[in-house]
């Protein structure tokens, strides 16, 4: 029982990460109609910049603003220099241009930091465990990630539903042309949304540092699951990204944790491990295929584009 709760919490933590990335992706896609494969690179930039600054100053908390600023700046630069020219191009051109950005970003980071993974130091206050239930100890840092992610989700939903910018964002996701016709400076909105998405990606990248290694290619690892979240949740929908992110995070983690043992009841350990890992890696893609076949626009479709 304790094992199950622990894995669900792990899943929650992974789901929150997915949400932080998917929120940016889904806004960028919903509002600008751009498929941004380079979103994982912003995640990587945030992780590296934060880790570097944290190592320099010796403080985890000083690394955090560094990660956010670096990712947001990189995002804004990306939007101004490249993405801005792609709004009216086909999805194909967008996929290719952002694919090229991945190559450039990965290799630049390799040039700057080398190929060895880097480790972020854990903040001291959160290095221990917390006893959630009698007998259930859970790392405090992972709890911090979950709480931070939920707070960001709350903040985003307030931003989207209660503010003027949020209104423009919703309007943009529903009907881009109409917003432009109403006299809104859509270019400012685009850069702002892109910067916000980059900021969230940077946050996710930095927070994940102490748990898994910061290394080149970390962005691509999480990019595809984040895209799956966007598509399942319905492109442009923050709520969809949240629901799908948490669900997928929990499902994926639980499959990985329990499937090999279940298969082990039927076959030898080595085979069960390999097959279990394979099937659980397939899990989220299978889920996406099923959702798309039943609801081609995702679970929470936004308007018509």
């Amino acid at each position: 029982m304790i094992l199950i709760i622990e894995q669900i919490l792990n899943g929650l933590q992974y789901g929150v990460m997915l949400f932080l990335l998917a929120a940016g992706l889904t806004l960028i896609f919903g509002i600008m109609g751009v498929i941004n494969l380079a979103h994982g690179s912003l995640y990587m930039v945030g992780a590296y910049a934060g880790t570097w600054f944290a190592a320099l100053t010796g403080s985890f908390w000083l690394g955090l603003p560094a990660a956010l600023i670096a990712a947001a700046l990189a995002g804004a630069a990306l939007e101004l220099l490249v993405i801005r020219r792609l709004y009216h191009r086909s999805h194909l051109d967008q996929v290719l241009a952002t694919f090229a950005i991945i190559l450039i970003a990965n290799e630049s980071i390799t040039l700057l930091f080398g190929r060895q993974p880097v480790f972020t130091l854990l903040p001291e206050a959160f290095s221990g465990s917390v006893e959630l239930l009698p007998g259930l100890f859970y790392p405090a840092y992972r709890l911090l990630i979950i709480v931070a992610g939920l707070l960001v989700a709350l903040g985003l939903s307030l931003l989207i539903t209660r503010t003027r910018i949020g209104m423009l964002v919703r309007a943009g996701a529903t009907n881009r042309e109409m917003v432009r016709v109403m006299g809104v400076d859509i270019r400012m909105l685009y850069t702002a949304v892109f910067g916000l998405g980059a900021l969230l990606a940077g946050l996710a990248g930095y927070l994940t540092g102490p748990i898994s290694a910061v290394q080149v290619g970390m962005g691509e690892h999480i990019l595809l699951p984040a895209f799956v979240v966007v598509v399942i949740g319905g492109t442009g929908s923050i709520r969809g990204a949240f629901v799908a992110g948490i669900t997928l995070g929990v499902i994926d983690t639980c499959l990985r944790a329990f499937l090999p043992d279940l298969l082990n009841l039927m076959m030898p350990v080595a085979q069960a491990d390999a097959l279990g890992l394979g099937i659980s890696s397939m899990g989220i893609y299978l889920l996406m295929a099923i959702v798309l076949l039943i609801r081609p626009k995702g679970l929470f479709p936004v308007g018509a584009t």
Binding site: F227, A270, Q271, L275, S281, Y285, L286, A289
Partner: peptide, 26 residues
């Protein structure tokens, strides 16, 4: 049965499934 971005993503999903299938075929 889908179109647009969903088509791009669903073809990617199927390819990923096969990729992981072959990774797990010891």
């Amino acid at each position: 049965r889908t179109g647009g971005v969903q088509f791009i993503m669903i073809t990617l999903a199927f390819a990923q499934m096969l990729f992981f299938l072959f990774v797990s075929l010891k």
